[in-house]
Simulated scan of single mutants.
Amino acid sequence: MQQKRILIADFLHPVFKVEAEKLGYKVDDFPHYSKEQTLAEIANYHGIAVRTKFRIDKELIDAASGLEFIARAGAGLDNIDEAYAAAKGIKLLNAPEGNRDAVAEHAIGMLLSLMNNLRKSDFEVRNGIWDREGNRGVELNGRTVAIIGYGFMGQRFARKLKSFDVNVIAYDKYKTGFSDEYVTEVSMEQVVKQADVLSLHIPLTRETRQMVDEEYFFHFKKPIFFLNTARGEIVNTRSVLTAIQQGKILGAGLDVLEVEKFPGIADQSWFADLVANDKVILSPHVAGWSVESYRKISEVLANKLKDL
C-alpha cells in the first residue's frame, strides 16, 4: 500500500509533523514554499497543511489530483474555497480548539485596556502628562457583554468572563438552545437593547462580509465598547470611526482589519484617522497566535488526522 504524503506549505509547529508521522504519513515540511512551488508539487500529495500564506483556490485544488484533505492550522477557513473542495470530495480540517484561549484572553485584555484608558494614560505619562481625572476608568462589573457567534471562540470568551460578574448574552444565527451557566441565548433585538459591550466571534462568509456597518451600529440603544477578534472584512472600518464620532462606540479593540499588513494597509482612506484615534486599540491579527496556541493548534490538527 502506498504511503500517504502530506505537504506542509506554511510555518506549523514541529509537533504536527511528528504526530502525523506516528500515524504513518510521509511528511514533507517546506514552509517557505510559494504558491507557484506548491502548484508544481501538489499532485504528489494526499494532504496539505497551511496557515494563511496563500489561498487554496480552484487552481490549486485542480492541480491537486490526489488530494484527500486540507489541514488549516487555525480556526477560519476563509482562505480556502470550501465549496469547490467539498465538490471534489476533499475534507477540511481546522483547529479552533487550539487558539480559543488565546483569542478569549486577548479580547478581555483589549476590553480592559479600553475601559481603563490604558493606552491613552500610558502615552500621556510617558509624555509628562499626569491626568488622573481625564483617565478615570469604568468598571466591567455588572455590565452586559454581548457575543455574536457562539462557537469555540465565543464559548471560551463567555467562560473567561464569568469571574468578572457580568451578564453575558449571545446571539448565533445558526444555533439555538445553548444557554448554560456562562451565557444566556438571546435574539439580535435583545442584543441591541441590552449590550454594553459587543464582541464578534463569527467566521467570514459571503453573508458576514461588511455585515457591521453604520446601519448595524445605528440600532444599538446604548453606547458600547466594540471588539473584533474575528475577521476584519466583517466590519466596515469607516463605520466604526463614524460611530465613535457619534458617541455610539465608546472604544474599539480591533485585532483584525479590512486590509492587513503593510504597505497596503497604509494606503486605505481610513487608516490615518484610525491610528490617530485614542479610543481605538489595535493589534496585528495576533489574538489567536500566542506562544501556547502555536503548539496547541498543531496538536489539535494532527489529532484530527486520526479520524480520516
Rank of each mutant, 00 (worst) to 15 (best):
M1T: 14
A9R: 06
A9F: 04
L12V: 13
P14H: 07
V15W: 08
E19R: 14
K22M: 00
V27M: 02
P31K: 04
H32T: 15
S34K: 06
L39T: 05
Y45W: 02
R51C: 04
R51E: 06
R51V: 07
R55L: 12
D57G: 00
D57T: 03
G66I: 02
A71V: 04
R72F: 01
A73W: 00
A75C: 09
D78F: 05
I80K: 09
I80Q: 04
E82N: 07
A86W: 14
K88T: 15
L92F: 05
N94G: 05
A95C: 14
P96T: 13
G98L: 04
N99Y: 10
I108V: 11
M115A: 04
N116Y: 08
N116K: 15
N117S: 06
R119D: 14
K120M: 13
D122P: 02
G128W: 10
I129E: 12
D131G: 00
E133T: 08
N135W: 12
R143V: 03
R143G: 02
I147F: 05
I147P: 06
G149M: 10
S163Q: 10
D172C: 09
K175Y: 13
K175W: 10
E185F: 03
V192Y: 07
Q194M: 14
V197D: 02
L200F: 10
P203H: 04
L204N: 01
T205N: 02
T208C: 03
T208F: 02
V212M: 03
E214V: 09
F218M: 10
F220I: 04
K221A: 15
F225A: 01
F226Q: 00
T229F: 11
G232Q: 04
E233W: 00
V240C: 01
Q246S: 06
Q246V: 02
A252Y: 01
G253M: 07
E258I: 07
P263R: 00
P263H: 08
I265L: 14
S269I: 06
W270R: 03
F271R: 08
F271P: 12
D278M: 11
V286R: 05
A287K: 01
A287I: 10
G288I: 11
W289K: 08
V291Q: 13
I297L: 13
I297N: 06
N303A: 15
K306V: 15
